[in-house]
Amino acid sequence: MKKVSTSIVLLLALLLNVSAQKHILNYRIKEEFSPANDIVGIQFDSKGAMWVATSYGLYKKEQNEWVLSGAANIYMQSFFIDKHDKIWTALWGEGVHASVDGKKWESIKAAAPSGSANVITADNKGEIWVGDFSAGVLRSGKDKWINYKAGNVGLGDNSILAILPDNKSRMWFGSYHGLSLFDGKLWRLYNKANSKLPDNNVYALLDDAKGDVWIGTCNGLARLSGNTWVVYNVENSGLSSDLILSLGVDAKGNIWAGTNKGVNVFDGKNWQTFNVKNSALIDDRVQVITAYKNAIYLGTSKGIAVFN
Rank of each mutant, 00 (worst) to 15 (best):
R188N: 14
R188V: 09
L189A: 06
Y190C: 01
Y190L: 08
N191A: 06
N191I: 04
K192S: 13
K192N: 11
K192Q: 14
K192Y: 09
K192R: 15
K192E: 15
A193S: 14
A193C: 01
N194Y: 07
N194H: 11
N194R: 02
S195V: 12
K196S: 15
K196M: 14
K196L: 14
K196Y: 13
K196E: 15
K196T: 11
L197Y: 02
L197E: 10
L197N: 01
L197F: 04
P198W: 00
P198A: 05
P198D: 06
D199P: 00
D199R: 07
N200Q: 10
N200A: 08
N200L: 04
N201L: 14
N201M: 12
N201D: 13
N201W: 11
V202A: 08
V202D: 06
V202Y: 04
V202K: 01
Y203H: 11
Y203P: 00
Y203S: 11
Y203K: 08
A204F: 00
A204V: 00
L205I: 02
L205H: 07
L205G: 06
L205A: 04
L206A: 10
L206I: 08
D207I: 06
D207R: 03
D207E: 12
D208R: 07
D208Y: 05
D208G: 09
A209N: 12
K210R: 15
G211M: 10
G211K: 04
G211R: 07
D212G: 13
D212H: 15
D212S: 15
V213Y: 02
V213M: 10
V213K: 09
V213E: 06
V213F: 05
V213S: 07
V213I: 15
V213Q: 04
W214Y: 06
W214G: 01
W214M: 01
W214P: 01
I215R: 03
I215H: 02
G216P: 00
G216S: 10
G216R: 03
G216E: 11
G216K: 07
T217M: 10
T217K: 05
T217A: 10
T217N: 08
C218P: 00
C218E: 15
N219Y: 12
N219L: 10
N219I: 04
N219D: 15
N219Q: 14
N219G: 03
G220I: 05
G220Q: 05
G220V: 05
G220L: 08
